[in-house]
Design a protein around this nucleic acid. Structure first.
Lengths: 110, 110
DNA sequence: TAAACCAATCGTAATATTACAATAACAGTT
DNA sequence: AACTGTTATTGTAATATTACGATTGGTTTA
């Protein structure tokens, strides 16, 4: 088959899975890292920086926008992208909530 | 086409993308959460818990094992899975390093 | 040894993702 | 209005992922 059975899982579990997709492709990681250091950029910057085709970058940007981790504003004939602070914090919290749940057991568990 | 151009990206970027895949499917999130609260479990536990076929659970477990976030030890006729503490910490650090790089700018960036 | 149990693997089908060329859409410029 | 620059979208091909039934390989139990 090949279609994820989202109805089997909780809202939180599906949310985390969606958020994780922002980081599950090296190009998207690279885009996010570029935005972290440059604060804002346009499609063309990323084409030069990453070496992928313009259409491919645009596709990744759309995914990141759909996830909500970035936002774009029209600026003349170009679109300026940046990180969405609220969503960023939300995703950070979701992940940290999971990361902090684990405590290394004293003995060997398995 | 459809094959990720890993050679365009840094080691770190590819590493993070691989680690993120552990969380990029709700079933794997559910498995990880189950391991967090039960410390250890076997394939059969997850089949009951998640409602997916045995083969599907096994496939997700293999992925998680390949990523290194879980480990399995043979225990008689069954295999006991648990979280790999070292790898867990490593992934946690990788993500936090990214999460902490963002500082919300005073004004609107875009 | 046979039966029962458990989990990995194989085979297969459906769907999703990744990538790019080509084209469309739109703003600014000449 | 024609041209240029920038990005989204469309179309398409290749590869990857997800899911499950069936089978295999292993250990335990009867």
């Amino acid at each position: 088959m090949g279609v994820t059975k989202t109805d089997l899982f909780s809202q939180v579990q599906n949310d985390i899975a969606v958020a994780a997709k922002a980081f599950s492709h090296p190009a998207r990681v690279a885009i996010i890292q570029y935005l972290l250091k440059s604060n804002a950029c346009i499609n063309g910057d990323l084409v030069l920086e990453l070496g992928l085709a313009q259409a491919t970058i645009s596709q990744h940007l759309r995914e990141l926008k759909e996830i909500g981790i970035i936002q774009g504003t029209i600026e003349g004939s170009r679109i300026s992208y940046c990180i969405n602070p609220d969503r960023w914090g939300q995703i950070k919290n979701q992940f940290n909530q999971i990361f902090d749940q684990f405590e290394s057991p004293k003995g060997q568990c398995c």
